[in-house]
Write a protein that binds this DNA or RNA. Structure first.
Lengths: 176, 176
DNA sequence: TTAATCCGAGACAATAAGTCGCAGCTTATC
DNA sequence: GATAAGCTGCGACTTATTGTCTCGGATTAA
């Protein structure tokens, strides 16, 4: 029996895609990995692929730019954006460019699958105010994004010490 | 000369809409305020209104539910979601339900106007990003306001130590 | 009155941030 | 292809900020 679905995973983290491919296989979902901009556009021509999990951080290249390119070739494709460093700004932009959803790592395979069929039952009607740390993290991500991941430039723009920014990023990427 | 645009502002904070209406008037934009779910749906029938600024937190009612209702009556309406405390989850849901953008308070009138015409290429024409301290201070003020100046409650909501909040407020009040 | 809650603040330990320096790596520029 | 400039990660040290515990006094509700 052939798998019921076929996904494309676009993420420069090869270890991550390896694990995910195996996990999806257990759910009877076939998946192909692409680790950069060019090979993603190449792979997506395969018509049996209906869904795509797209990381925003492609080792220097922008997943946000890739998103409309993918949809131009395959207007019917369902693209779910999955990113390590999420922010409201990139979430809004991703949705505007045609993503069906936007999730932050780490996620379970179940969450990922459900992410393609968002329920109408609304997540949080009354969002709790984010803690100052969450707020800070959002803001750092936004500015870091504006500066193309340049840590020194971001630290200057944020008026904070480079060493401090470095440590914050470090700690955050370890735990999340 | 009649104003070039007419907006509907949906926000339960009357002081906020008052100020905003005056600011928009200076930009030659007329605006009408609605402070709850029902009156928003009533006011939106006016055909001269083309744009809507929608707060998500309507004193118990959900702006997120209101959004599709507004668009059902007026499919051509441009709705910009503006919320006190934003989250990725609500941002994604708002965009999915047809918002043209999603911004967090506080914003300037210029940011609001530009928010209705999001640029494709994300040009460099943006105001300097606020430092993390400015960002934090704004957020603290917002949540403090939300809790009627109750420091203990604010500290709990912000997941920070009361003593720390106390010291931050102290230091800041000395400078201003 | 009693109990609960909030507030300001002192004191000290734990944690985080600022500072300096260095080596390795890219990326322009000549 | 050598030089220079910029970015990065990280160790080590000093300084600043937070967390924690603790009062006493003020305010509020039962």
């Amino acid at each position: 029996m052939p798998p019921k679905e076929h996904w494309l995973l676009v993420d420069d983290d090869q270890a991550f895609t390896q694990v995910l491919i195996r996990s999806l296989a257990r759910q009877d979902i076939a998946a192909t990995a692409a680790h950069d901009y060019a090979s993603a556009l190449e792979t997506i021509t395969a018509p049996e692929i209906q869904r795509c999990v797209l990381d925003l951080n492609l080792a220097g290249e922008s997943g946000l730019q890739l998103l409309p390119e993918l949809l131009k070739q395959r207007p019917d494709l369902e693209v779910l954006v999955l990113t390590g460093y999420g922010s409201i700004a990139t979430a809004v932009e991703a949705m505007r460019r045609g993503a069906v959803n936007y999730l932050c790592k780490p996620v379970t395979v179940q969450q990922l699958i459900r992410g393609f069929d968002p329920v109408e039952g609304e997540p949080e009607l009354r969002p709790a105010p984010p803690s100052v740390e969450e707020m800070e993290w959002e803001h750092i991500q936004r500015v870091l994004n504006e500066h193309d991941g340049n840590i020194s430039a971001t630290a200057r723009a944020l008026n904070m010490h480079r060493r401090t920014l470095q440590r914050k990023l470090q700690k955050h990427s370890r735990w999340r």
